[in-house]
Each structure stands twice: as C-alpha cells, then as structure tokens.
Amino acid sequence: MSAMTQIRETFRRDQVWSFLQPAQASVDVSKDILLYVEDLNVSFDGFKAINNLNLYINDGELRCLIGANGAGKTTLMDIITGKTEPDSGSVWFGQTHNLLEQDEAAIAHLGIGRKFQKPTVFEEHTVFTNLELSLKTNKAVLPTLFARLSTQQKARIQEVLDTIGLSEQQDQMAGSLSHGQKQWLEIGMLLASDSRLLLVDEPVAGMTAEETERTAELLTSLAGKHTVVVVEHDMAFVRSIARTVTVLHQGSVLAEGTMDEIQANPDVIEVYLGEDPEGEAA
C-alpha cells in the first residue's frame, strides 16, 4: 500500500479513529446487583424527602417504582443521576463506582441514562440525527471535527431504530412525531448512548392505548440486556410489565414484591392504591 493510499485510508469520511473513542466504563456486577442504595437520606427545608432508603436493583431486571406524589421517586432519580446531593447514605453502581463522588456527566458516561416524563428530543433534526448525536463518542472539539460515522455506528443506529419501531420515520423531523413516537425516540437515544441502566419516568403519560401497549412491549424487550427502572402511576400499565414492584412512601420503601403481592398489601392499599387497586392510584 502506497503512502498516499495509507493517508486516504486513515482519513476516510466513514472512519472514526479508535484513539478518539471514549473508553468503555467497566462495571463489576459479580454479585448480580447493578445498583445499591443504602441508608439514603435527604431533606429540603426540614422536609424529609428520602428517609433511610434501602434499594437494590439486580443487573438486567425490570423494576417498577410506584408511590404517591412526594413519596421520593423523583428525588431518588435525581440522586442517582448526580443532580441532587444526599445528606447521608451511599449509592453504588456495581461494586466499584461510588455515584456520590461523580458529577452528572461522569454518571452518564458510566452508563446511566434518564428519560423524563416530557420527551426531550431535538425536534429540528431527523430521527436518525437524534440517534447519531446520542452515540457515545468523544465530544471534544478535535474528535468532533474529524469523526465520521463508521459502518459499525450506522449499524448500531439501525439496530436501535428497529428496536424502537421508527425505521420508517428515520428521515422524519423529530418534531413531527406523535407523542408516543417521541417517547420511543428518547428511549432510543438512551440505547444509542449505551446506557446500561435506564431510568424511565412515567413513559405512558398522554399516550393512546395502542402506544401504551407498544411501550410495554418495548420496555419488556429491553430487560436482560439493560436494567430498566420505571416510575409510573398507571397501575394497569405497571401490571402489564411488572416483575418486581417497589412502593415508596414518605421517602422509604413501604413494600416490595410481585404486583399481586403489592395489590394485596393492606398498607399499600391504605396509603396509595385506595379502594380500587386495579385502577389508577388515588
């Protein structure tokens, strides 16, 4: 191979140099637990938002978190993602990563992704470009200037498009998608960024029945390869996807178990489910 050919090969437009790629974080799950939350406490102006909370999420599981407004669900997610600093306690990602010592960017790089209730997609870009922008690449100036999508990255985007059911919409502007499709795109953006732990907040709020069913299928399909934690108030939806349900109340775990066990728990019925445990939360 001539020197000129070597230069052309090095600077191919579809080539991303390996030394410009960020290193993949290693997560020790030798005990089969991906997330450890222990003795966690946080107060806001005297209000105890999280109160001696202990929670363990297994690697690859689909866990549902339920509880009334103010139970501590959002605050817990804020702590896990580095947005809020607790007063005491510990939060570990696997055996080796102390999340309380990391900032939000570092936590995201470790492989923890969060989807808020309201979709936050780049509406003026296509579905494909949204996923491209979400790829885990070095975002510094030099790598960004030189990087081009590799064949592997294109294949990864196509895999995500197939998973979220938006292959036919890949050239469509994200802003023109339906509400449900935007939710799926945002989940796809977490997948494209190689998030190992997905924190999904009220994914079916405002969805049609058909979109809700498709979302249940999507989240269920992700469990195993990913760890998925879903916060949701729609009990019918929770029942359709739940394997293990954790009920939060006043910042602590009130109950944990299968959906049948949760719906038969008198404490849960009293403080959260009310008189109609099959329907929406009271």
Results as ranks from 00 to 15, higher is better:
6 Q>V: 01
38 E>Y: 00
181 Q>C: 06
102 Q>I: 00
56 Y>V: 05
215 T>L: 06
186 E>Y: 00
238 V>G: 08
76 L>H: 08
98 N>G: 08
163 T>G: 02
148 R>K: 14
25 A>P: 12
128 F>G: 00
142 L>C: 03
238 V>S: 08
128 F>T: 04
244 T>R: 14
156 R>K: 15
36 Y>S: 12
222 L>R: 03
97 H>F: 04
279 G>Q: 11
95 Q>S: 13
110 L>I: 14
278 E>Q: 13
52 N>A: 14
176 S>T: 13
118 K>D: 13
76 L>K: 11
158 Q>D: 10
188 G>L: 07
167 S>W: 04
224 G>Q: 07
123 E>D: 14
137 T>P: 01
78 D>N: 15
253 V>A: 06
64 C>V: 15
136 K>L: 05
18 S>I: 04
42 V>C: 05
237 F>N: 06
26 S>L: 11
168 E>L: 11
104 E>M: 13
53 L>K: 03
260 D>G: 11
57 I>C: 10
215 T>A: 12
54 N>L: 04
265 N>D: 14
88 S>Y: 03
131 L>K: 02
112 I>D: 10
26 S>V: 14
279 G>E: 10
45 D>K: 13
259 M>W: 09
243 R>D: 15
225 K>L: 06
91 V>C: 09
222 L>E: 11
242 A>I: 08
155 A>T: 07
275 E>Y: 12
81 T>W: 04
196 R>E: 04
24 Q>H: 09
75 T>C: 08
174 A>V: 09
277 P>L: 03
73 K>G: 03
147 A>Y: 11
239 R>H: 12
141 V>C: 00
139 K>W: 12
278 E>N: 09
191 L>A: 03
149 L>R: 13
189 M>P: 01
167 S>L: 11
168 E>I: 06
13 R>G: 01
117 Q>K: 05
13 R>E: 12
165 G>C: 07
61 E>W: 02
60 G>V: 10
149 L>M: 14
135 L>F: 04
80 I>F: 01
95 Q>D: 10
273 L>I: 04
161 L>I: 09
120 T>I: 03
129 T>D: 15
114 R>L: 07
184 W>G: 00
219 L>F: 11
18 S>Q: 14
38 E>D: 15
52 N>I: 06
29 V>Y: 01
274 G>V: 06
132 E>H: 04
46 G>K: 05
192 A>R: 01
259 M>F: 12
158 Q>W: 03
173 M>E: 12
28 D>F: 01
64 C>I: 09
172 Q>S: 12
245 V>N: 03
184 W>P: 00
128 F>W: 15
52 N>W: 01
51 N>Q: 10
223 A>M: 07
105 A>V: 11
46 G>V: 12
1 M>P: 09
261 E>L: 11
58 N>K: 15
54 N>E: 13
223 A>H: 02
55 L>S: 07
194 D>P: 05
213 E>G: 02
204 V>R: 03
67 G>K: 02
225 K>C: 09
237 F>S: 06
163 T>P: 02
100 L>C: 06
241 I>K: 07
176 S>A: 10
17 W>M: 13
147 A>V: 03
235 M>G: 03
271 V>D: 02
94 G>A: 10
258 T>Q: 05
168 E>V: 09
181 Q>M: 12
